[in-house]
Every structure is written in C-alpha cells, then in structure tokens.
Design a protein around this nucleic acid. Structure first.
Lengths: 205, 205
DNA sequence: GTCTATAGGCAGATAGAC
DNA sequence: GTCTATCTGCCTATAGAC
C-alpha cells in the first residue's frame, strides 16, 4: 500500500508537507483545504510552505506524482510475488481497501471529482495515473485469460476500466457510511464475476 | 432523466437558482463554487440569493432534496413502463449516462467525495439518496431473479450496491477523459455479467 | 424581492529580515 | 529555511433602503 505517513520527525520538511497535504486532499478534496491547514498541523508558517511549494498547483502536481509512483511501486511488488493472476486482482483490490481503511478516498479519485477546477498540470497527472493502472490491469487480465485463471468476455481494456471504475466508485460510496465492509462486499462481487475457478465467494461482514 | 434545466425565464427565481447551483455542484463540487458564481449567471446580486437560501448549507439541502425526488420519479416512471427487470437495469444505467452526457457528475456522487466537509443536514440527505437507490435496485434484482431474467450470486443488496458503486465510479473516472463511450463500455460490462439470457453483448465504441 | 453597501474573515501569494 | 508583516481579492453573510 502506498504510504509512509505520519509527519515523522526524521523526514525533511517537503516530505512532511506532502504527507499532511495528501491526507487533506484525500479526506477533504483539493478545494477543501488551505495552506493555513497544513501550516497549523506542522507548526510552521504559510510563508515557509510557499518556500517549498510556490503555488498550490505545484503542490498538487507533486502530490499526484508521489502518489502515483508509490502506487505503481506497490503494483510492481505485487508482480514480484509469485502468485496467480486471480490473486493479483485480489491484491489490487486490497490496495484500495487499505486506502479506505485509513478513512481516505483514492487521491486521484478525489481529484477526478474536482477535475474541472484543476490546473492543467494536475489534470494531466490524474489521467496518467488512471492510464497506468489500466495498463497494469489489462496485462494481468490478458495473462489470466491465457492460463485460464481469470474469465471474462469482451476486450481486456474494457474489463480493466470496469475494475478501476467499480473500485473507485465503491470507495466513493462507502465513505459516507464509514463502512469498509460495504467496500469489501462490492469488491467481492466484482472479483466473483471474474473468477474462472468458480464460486469462491467469501463474505465476512 | 431528472432534469428540467435552463434558467428558463418562465420559472420562479428559487427554481432558477437551484438550476444554476445544481449544474455548478455537479461540475465543480460544493466547495468549488460561490454565491457570486450563481449571481453572475442569473444577473442578480448575492444579497438576493440569500433572501431565497439564507445559507449555503440550506441551498445544498434544497439541491439534494430536489435532485433525489426527481431521480426517484424517474425510477417510478421506469417501473411504469411494462418492461422486464433486465431492461429496468439498463434503464437505470441510462439515467446515469444521461447525466454524464450533460458533462456532469451525479450530484450525490460529487457530494460523497466532499462528504467530510459537508454540514450534517446535507450528509443525511446524501445517504438517503443512496439508500433509496439501493432499495429500488434490490427490488428489481429480486424480481429479476425470480422470473429468471437476471442472474447473480450472493445477496441482492450486495449486487445493488455494486451496481451503484460501479456506475458512480464509471462516471467519476470517465469525466477526466470527457468520454461517454468509456462509461458506456463499463456499464455494458457490468450489465453483461448480470444477464441470464447470456451473451447479449453490444458495443458501439 | 431586489438592490447598495459593508462587515469580518480567510484565501493564495509576496517582500524582506534573520 | 523560517519568520513577521502585509497585499489583494474573494468568501459567506447581514443591514437597511426601495
């Protein structure tokens, strides 16, 4: 899961700013927090923030870049495990569940909602995040179809997009209920439909 | 589809305010617009707005109440048509597609993203919207399972939640790409998995 | 029901001392 | 790299005339 967190005193200021800003965007949205909010939590002044990130737009771009690179690193580490493609899809869903458990929305899902208010640099970065996710899923789906562990009809690209959409949507709708089980059930339904070695249903809630 | 739109001169001021505010929330978010934005578009002053909706929170509550009642009316009119349950699910997805075609996000999907910044009255109304959608879908799914036109495993409630999540997520992710086809493909994948009279795949994109 | 005027506060951002 | 001080502009909201 892409995180390190915590304003831990051993990290440099820029990183701690990104940690706090990331949490704020994921919980309140990019238009839902201010430099004053970050400054207060870190006990520094707004002017100091502007030294590290001259504009809010630059801060936003740095936020997405770090988030995306951590997320892709997490996907690479899923690939490194010697597991089947069906299990890789489950691991993918788990990444989302971990974010939700931290009471956060996916950073780029949140920014997708606010998309029309974002500066162009942030917009590009958001699209790139989804494109990279799509490519990873498409590859896993194709591989899974080849070796018979995953079953689906239609283009792998469309299924990849459906997986991203469903997981993003499940996070979105679960948050008002503060209910991770709601997300898990939805993710479970989704994965069940992709399971070739049928009916591996598991429900905890 | 729940809309009437357009600041048409024949409607009263409160309705025209709601029309404009609704579009702003659905495109920019509740934290992404101001009374000044509405006033400018309607050529009235901010003070006049406060006469109709004393606070932004009250405006927000009125917005959700109207949106939800229109949406439920649209669902009632789907029920009124003499069509099968599979077709009702398709009609449900079409409601979302219509919103997206107007280059908007679902009002309550947008507010779900901003949920933690909303006053309590708006929060309640957002949850109520999703609860009502869930109930309608659950009923259609149960009926469809009874008469064999819809097939799914697991509780109807979980499937209902997956449908809502997937459609909300598909809207969310499609908007950065300005691409309704992306939504249609995802919705198509979703409905295919629920189709009992198998393989009725249709793709235009 | 709409207006002018304005309050009081917070937004993002900058200048310049240390 | 952090501070104090400040700018300009926008925010939600109100008072009171017409």
């Amino acid at each position: 899961m892409p995180r390190s967190e915590g304003s831990s005193p051993g990290r440099d200021t820029a990183s701690r700013i990104l940690d706090v800003a990331e949490r704020l965007v994921q919980t309140r949205g990019f238009n839902g927090f201010s430099y004053a909010d970050i400054a207060e939590r870190l006990h520094i002044t707004k002017a100091a923030l502007h030294h590290h990130f001259p504009t809010k737009a630059k801060l936003g771009e740095a936020l997405i870049a770090r988030y995306a690179s951590r997320f892709m690193a997490a996907l690479a580490s899923v690939d490194a495990r010697e597991i089947g493609d069906r299990e890789k899809l489950e691991a993918y869903a788990h990444l989302y569940a971990d974010v939700l458990r931290a009471k956060r929305m996916c950073l780029c899902g949140m920014l997708a909602a606010e998309y029309s208010t974002l500066p162009e640099g942030m917009r590009r970065a958001v699209r790139l995040f989804f494109d990279e996710n799509e490519r990873w899923l498409e590859r896993v789906l194709e591989e899974g179809r080849s070796d018979g562990t995953v079953s689906f009809g239609g283009p792998a690209r469309d299924v990849a997009r459906m997986i991203i959409s469903s997981l993003e949507g499940a996070m979105l709708v679960s948050r008002p209920y503060g209910d991770v089980d709601r997300f898990e059930a939805t993710a479970g339904e989704l994965l069940t439909t992709l399971s070739a070695t049928g009916r591996t249903r598991r429900r905890g809630g």
